[in-house]
């Protein structure tokens, strides 16, 4: 396990290099940074001196080298809007995003696991039909629409939850439901179909033949075998939430990374965009690594060569 971990961490290095190159290239794809930074009426002299100051006249590989050396030191340049180190601005927002991601995942999991197992064990019953219908609906609803509807109903009309922002426990409820609903829907369907298959397995019959209670047969013997796909989808969705809660964070004015990223893109604050993309990429890599470690803890047949 220890050797495996070291090897996995080493494997991350080339991945990060590739990501760093893409992030670097983003600046060029977005257009000439100098023309974005200077007002339109700037003279050619001013443009030239800024280009020189930013090192944009150097050959591309030199620029990339400088960029990598800076990035290794956690320096993605300064945000021109905040006039501060970009990475530290992004990292300030990371805890809020993580908080929302974790609460959303908990919400999705506590709904999806019992519901998925329940509808699998009562296949084709009314409960199953309702659960299946609800998960199709949950998956089909766009985030922004659900978020706005929740605000309209529960904040504006019924005034149970605050409309937006972050602060009390009540603030996180609506954005977490908004993000968690689609995930819960997908997980429910995944658990249902896996459990239906697993409940047909011979070892489930063996557990029943021991005289074990149905609940123990279901949760201990069957559901444990369903955990690999569940962990996979949880890891995928969590990295999705860290990087992709853009719309929801904007709708609820949640002060996370997603909101920052949207604002930075609109303002063409490339240093912030680069730092954001980099942090998100690292988060995705870490989530995958975590999932791999959990697989090994669940299933002894999985070996790391």
């Amino acid at each position: 396990m220890g050797r495996y971990l070291i090897r996995r961490v080493l494997q991350v290095i080339p991945v990060l290099l590739i990501i760093s190159f893409i992030v670097f290239a983003l600046v060029y794809m977005a257009g000439d940074p100098v023309s974005l930074m200077l007002p339109e009426e700037a003279s050619q002299e001013e443009i030239d001196s800024l280009r020189e100051a930013l090192g944009l006249n150097d050959p591309l590989h030199v620029q990339y080298g400088v960029y990598i050396i800076n990035a290794l030191q956690g320096d993605f340049g300064k945000s021109y809007r905040y006039n501060q180190d970009a990475l530290s601005i992004v990292l300030e927002r990371l805890p809020q995003t993580l908080e929302l991601a974790i609460v959303s995942m908990i919400f999705a999991t506590i709904i999806a696991i019992p519901l998925g197992i329940w509808s699998a064990s009562k296949q084709n019953s009314y409960i199953d039909l309702i659960a299946t219908g609800a998960s199709v609906l949950g998956k089909a609803m766009p985030n922004f629409w659900l978020g706005i509807m929740l605000i309209l109903l529960l904040s504006v009309n019924l005034a149970i939850f605050p409309v937006s922002g972050r602060g009390t426990l009540m603030h996180i409820v609506l954005p977490a439901i908004t993000l968690g609903t689609a995930i819960a829907a997908e997980m429910t369907r995944l658990i249902r179909s896996n459990m239906i298959e697993i409940m047909q397995q011979d070892y489930v019959r063996t557990a029943k033949s021991k005289g074990q209670k149905d609940s123990i047969v279901t949760y201990r013997h069957a559901f444990k075998n369903c955990l690999i796909p569940v962990v996979t989808i949880m890891a995928l969705q969590t990295s999705g939430l860290i990087g992709g809660a853009l719309v929801t964070e904007v709708v609820f004015a949640w002060p996370g990374m997603g909101q920052l990223l949207v604002q930075a893109v609109n303002a063409r604050d490339m240093a912030i965009v680069q730092a954001c993309v980099f942090v998100i990429a690292v988060a995705v890599i870490l989530m995958n690594l975590l999932a791999d470690i959990i697989y090994r803890m669940i299933d002894p047949r999985i070996k790391y060569e």
């Binding site: 063996t206 021991k210 013997h221």
Partner: peptide
Amino acid sequence: NGQMRTLRGNEISMIFQEPLTSLNPL
């Protein structure tokens, strides 16, 4: 069902055809 469970695996037990799939892999 509950009364049956006290017998199953205790007074009446069963072995199956496929020993690989009949044991829980985890």
